[in-house]
Design a protein around this nucleic acid. Sequence first.
DNA 1: ACCTGAACACCGTTCAAGT
DNA 2: ACCTGAACACCGTTCAAGT
Lengths: 203, 203
Amino acid sequence: MPPPDDRPYHHGDLRRTVIDTAIAMLDERAGPQFTLREVARRAGVSHAAPYKHFPDKAALLTEIALIGFDRLRDALRGASLGANADALAALTAMGWAYLTFGQTNPGLYRLMFGAELGGNPDLHLSDRAMGAFDEVIAVLERGQAEGLIRARPVRGQAGACWAQLHGLTLLTLDGLLIAEKVGECAITAALAVLVEGLATREG
Amino acid sequence: MPPPDDRPYHHGDLRRTVIDTAIAMLDERAGPQFTLREVARRAGVSHAAPYKHFPDKAALLTEIALIGFDRLRDALRGASLGANADALAALTAMGWAYLTFGQTNPGLYRLMFGAELGGNPDLHLSDRAMGAFDEVIAVLERGQAEGLIRARPVRGQAGACWAQLHGLTLLTLDGLLIAEKVGECAITAALAVLVEGLATREG
DNA sequence: ACCTGAACACCGTTCAAGT
DNA sequence: ACCTGAACACCGTTCAAGT
């Protein structure tokens, strides 16, 4: 839809429009490369207008990444609640939800963990970013209480889950887990190894 | 050291100098962002000179990433040969060698798997990129023959190893696996989960 | 055969000026 | 309070011209 010629001088909600446009461009290109000037062009404002709402491009990227972590936490929480089975089944459901999130939002996912914002403590150590991590911890604690998951420090186990899911997501996005090199369904196999490493031997 | 004033008009080995300079800049910044013009500046040539050796920046990045995969394969092979113990010990040694490679070459590692070259079949599906993967497969096959690793399709197990190591490497580079959030030593814990998921129950 | 310098079309960012 | 347009210092890439 072309922008109307009677566009007012004041946009009204440019901050939200910039964020939404940038996220859309992110997943169009499946990578964290987009141009602030093109965002402004699509929003129908001058290339300088976004600077009234964000101090610079890095601030916009950080804001978007935090929104991504919110969405990831919601996806994991939904999968955890939807699976009213034992903790191991819930953990598997969360694993698939995590992978689906990455496949559905490739550019957003790469931005959340990419070098552009890597090591930024305001992002990765924020409560919003850790929210997704806490969902995994909660299910692992439940599994230990149920006797389905080995009695080990949950944070170490959560780290293993996160690393496995993060690696699987990125290798899939890179096209590295194709069937002919890695087996029939590499993702299923990898999740099985993870679950067997967490489950009690008598489980 | 300043460039000598008697620098000849013809550089001599500009192709190799460009690659080496770019790799050095990559790991200085711990990210895959560097400028072709700055590479040329450091090499003491005009900004157009590199175009006589690489068609564009993407070709240089691909070349560098392939060199990175060569080095990663060498590191894994060295760890595998150095550990003349059982296959599980060799696998753990390879895991630590993988993580060390990422910590030592953060920018190079991110380039090898980053969005800049993501999904490029000439890179990730090349024999050079798959060489590192084959080292893991060899050790897993040995472990199955020794009865230390569960009899499952090795390619699925190798995918699980790779995903776990890739995820651990990147989360560590992002500063996400710090002790206070994730436990005393998240890496040790994650590798333990991986090994327990691969090892035979009677092992 | 290899390199330079000017040129082109971009980009992020700033700032005086407009509404 | 919010937005524009010109400006600045960059970048990747091209190409005629130099050695």
